[in-house]
Design a protein around this nucleic acid. Structure first.
Length: 193
DNA sequence: CCCAGGATTGACT
DNA sequence: GTCAATCCTGGGA
């Protein structure tokens, strides 16, 4: 689990890998949506053959993006209330973006989320999507062109690994990745690398 | 057609 | 720690 080097171009081949390989590689990468965003600090992998994945029972209208080409967005509605952003990897697999450290367009995030402590702007998949203005409209869009922008940075950090959050199946798989000690994650990491 | 349940969040005890 | 909000998917009848 080596950080993605700054200056490297993220292209389709970056995502054409197993989700559990892409998820840690995304930590430290800058994510912008319409020029608003920050540094990814927490992700979760959902692979094919994963009982916790929306793709587990095969292709349906909702999860169609997960079976499309890599390097595209899969956006779904969570609990009828929130939107959650995923990056599609190999067919049937994806990475859920769970938290970023806000760096750019914070005033837009505050408008969308209401006046909150910056700590609560993007620390969770639903919060992040709301702060960046991501909705169903982004489902199926390429991650390599506007409104998205992905760029590796020179951030230094230690990648931690832990159990995924909020799922009922396959809950013991260590497929959540993030910056150890970061105050911007949705939940602290307890496990080792 | 029906309806249980969910990759969450915020409010509350 | 507990719990409701809210909607829409998709499996089963």
């Amino acid at each position: 689990m080596t950080p993605t080097p700054a200056g490297m171009t993220i292209d389709e081949s970056f995502f054409a890998r197993p989700a559990e390989e892409v998820a840690p590689a995304l930590i430290g990468v800058e994510l912008l949506h319409d020029g608003v965003g920050g540094i990814i600090v927490e992700t979760e992998a959902y692979h094919d053959q994963d009982p916790a994945s929306h793709s587990y029972r095969g292709r349906t209208p909702r999860n169609a993006s997960m079976f499309g080409p890599p390097a595209h967005a899969y956006v779904y509605r969570s609990y009828g209330i929130h939107w959650c952003l995923n990056f599609v990897c190999l067919p049937g697999s994806a990475v859920l973006v769970r938290a970023i450290r806000p760096t750019t367009g914070i005033e837009h995030m505050l408008e969308r989320r209401g006046q909150l402590a910056e700590r609560l702007l993007c620390s969770g998949p639903g919060r992040l999507a709301e702060a960046l203005g991501i909705t169903r409209e982004a489902d199926g869009l390429s991650l390599l062109a506007p409104p998205f922008r992905l760029r590796p940075t020179a951030e230094t950090y230690e990648i931690a690994r832990d159990r995924r959050i909020g799922i009922t199946k396959a809950k013991d798989e260590l497929l959540r990745f993030g910056v150890r000690g970061s105050p911007w994650v949705s939940r602290r990491f307890a496990g080792e690398i």
